[in-house]
């Protein structure tokens, strides 16, 4: 029977954080999230964690499981061995147990303006995009904003203003979108002291991404695009 060692912390009762161990009866095909629900429903109803879709789409249940950031719903208990240590995402304030305050994460995401800024006034009909143009951003659209990359990034750990791998990769998603008209303004913003040049190409984000995306590669592409824009005199100065 696997042991779940779960991070517990309740700032309201004033006690220190600790790891609490639970014995969870294993079933075939059981995911870590299922184990957490077992604890919640049968062993300790005060355990706090986030989850929603249970199928790796919503990105709510990203947490640190046996040394790596993963989605609890996609992580098989059988592959974790008999001891499953679970911590919350790093670099964000713990609200309670496995629930962290995602406000900085989404503030950085909002800062890159994650919506289309068309060059012309929107018309009456939908934006047309060719299949070829769509394929350029296919990879980056798949990001579910779970925060695994953000929690794993050592630059985020030391620099709260750094935009983070999630925001920078989404930045490329809009820079590369054929329907967007603000590519150079976006590149200028992403090239500031908070952006792509703070990335040290550590690859943690790429290693942990549950959707097998490549934020490090996206940041590398943005660096090259920024250099070309700068050399061609198209990188606007703002601020």
């Amino acid at each position: 029977m696997p042991i779940f060692s779960v991070f517990r912390y309740n700032p309201e009762d004033g006690s220190d954080a600790f790891f609490q161990e639970f014995e969870v009866p294993e079933k075939k095909g059981m995911a870590v999230l299922e184990g957490l629900y077992y604890i919640l429903e049968n062993l300790d109803a005060t355990l706090a964690f986030r989850s929603s879709c249970r199928q790796g789409v919503c990105g709510s249940c990203a947490m640190h499981i046996n040394g790596q950031y993963r989605l609890a719903c996609e992580t098989q208990v059988a592959k974790m061995g008999n001891f499953v240590r679970i911590r919350p995402l790093a670099h964000m304030t713990v609200i309670r147990d496995l629930v962290v305050d995602m406000e900085p994460f989404f503030r950085q995401y909002e800062a890159i303006k994650p919506y289309l800024i068309p060059a012309e006034e929107p018309g009456d009909r939908e934006y047309i995009q060719s299949q070829k143009d769509r394929r350029r951003i296919d990879h980056y659209v798949d990001c579910i904003l779970c925060g695994a990359c953000y929690g794993s990034c050592p630059v985020v750990a030391t620099d709260e203003k750094y935009l983070g791998p999630h925001a920078l990769m989404k930045g490329l998603r809009f820079v590369d979108d054929s329907r967007d008209g603000a590519a150079y303004e976006r590149l200028a913003y992403l090239s500031t002291d908070n952006g792509i040049f703070r990335c040290h190409t550590i690859f943690n984000c790429q290693q942990v991404c549950p959707k097998d995306l490549d934020p490090t590669g996206a940041i590398g592409k943005l660096k090259m695009k920024s250099v070309w824009a700068k050399l061609r005199g198209k990188l606007p100065k703002t601020g």
Partner: peptide
């Protein structure tokens, strides 16, 4: 995009 943007890191 209101933050100061200099593009200094690019070069």
């Amino acid at each position: 995009m209101t933050d100061k943007a200099s593009g200094q890191g690019t070069l």
